[in-house]
Design a binder for these strands. Structure first.
Lengths: 190, 190
DNA sequence: GGGTGCATGTAATGGGTTACATGATTCT
DNA sequence: AGAATCATGTAACCCATTACATGCACCC
């Protein structure tokens, strides 16, 4: 398993460090825990687990179920945990930026300001919804994982979500004002 | 040219709407104008321009140069501009989140807090550098494009950079404090 | 009877980076 | 002499999503 660029396998190792899980479980867990900053599809998860097993970083146990397909439970091996630790120490590679909203706004002068306004309004709604969700999740975490040593770290990741979403929301509001002004200037003709 | 998911071709159209350019120019322009929220490699740009030309959305003119390879200058056709407009009106598809720093922090309890501290410190430095750059760029834009109708839109994109980078920086500082506290608690023994 | 959830996986396709290949000119 | 800039492009590779394929159980 020569070093990859992507972090999919590391994400799998990390999640398995929280306990044995199936691919299906992992998908669900991703969405409800790290969904606001990470995602994986089945097309990555299942082949990924297989590769990790071949490399000896995880162990597979099959659980029979009646009337349901078997569950393949994967758990970290010692080598797997060490691999995870090694990776955690490496400085994160920073992602290439790709923000389609900003790209459209950059060329915004080509279309009526109302078009941009609508894009920004939708963006605002999205982040306001996120902010609400973050509050709910924070409370749920504190309730359900009161003394878990992981808790402070989970809250740290949530906190960035809050900071950036409220920054985005603030920017949206300012931008909406600016766009309205641009519209007025156009219409009013000087 | 059946509808794509990626926005590479649209980005090319957008940049060409600012004036005729070569692939080389486009690369350079991306880095100095929209580099903080978009990127393209030559491996995308050159084939992309070729496809746009085949589809009749751009026109190619070759400029001879002495001692240098020919420059292939591309410019928008009317259909190209219309295609751009159509795309600008469509709501932006939101990107899948993938933040490796947060992923590492989420599993931070597995390694000494100092490891996370260093990752966060580097992140802070990055955003502080960005903030400086944004100021410089904003001034340069106002100086060089005083009455350009694009200017307000360019400033809007810059403004989001400022908002989010200062939010990230603030979060970094808070997080550094929290991590130091966690370190003290570990060492001091409850 | 039909949707949703459980549960696994593969194949096709798409989108993107990196490395390679070429070669003159100009700056240090 | 050597590095950087100008300038074009292709091929190999990697990473990821989506669609497909399967099938039982449970609820409405």
């Amino acid at each position: 398993m020569k070093a990859e660029r992507g972090a999919t396998l590391k994400a799998l190792l990390g999640l398995l460090s929280l306990g044995p899980m199936s691919g299906y479980d992992i998908r669900a867990l991703i969405q409800e825990s790290i969904g606001h900053f990470w995602s994986e599809s089945y097309g990555q998860i299942y082949p990924g687990l297989k590769r990790l097993a071949t490399a000896g970083l995880v162990e597979k146990k099959t659980e029979r179920q009646k009337g349901r397909p078997d569950r393949h439970l994967y758990s970290l091996t010692d080598e797997g945990r060490e691999e995870l630790w090694r990776w955690l120490r490496l400085p994160p590679v920073d992602e290439v930026p790709r923000n389609e909203l900003l790209l459209k706004l950059f060329f915004g002068a080509q279309v009526p300001a109302s078009v941009c306004r609508e894009h920004v309004a939708a963006h605002l709604a999205k982040h306001e919804a996120l902010l609400k969700r973050y509050s709910v999740v924070a409370k749920a975490l504190e309730r359900e994982h009161g003394h878990d040593p992981d808790l402070p770290y989970w809250l740290i990741t949530l906190s960035l979500g809050r900071h950036t979403s409220s920054a985005e929301a603030k920017w949206c509001k300012e931008t909406l004002k600016r766009l309205e002004e641009l519209e007025r200037k156009k219409k009013g003709g000087r």
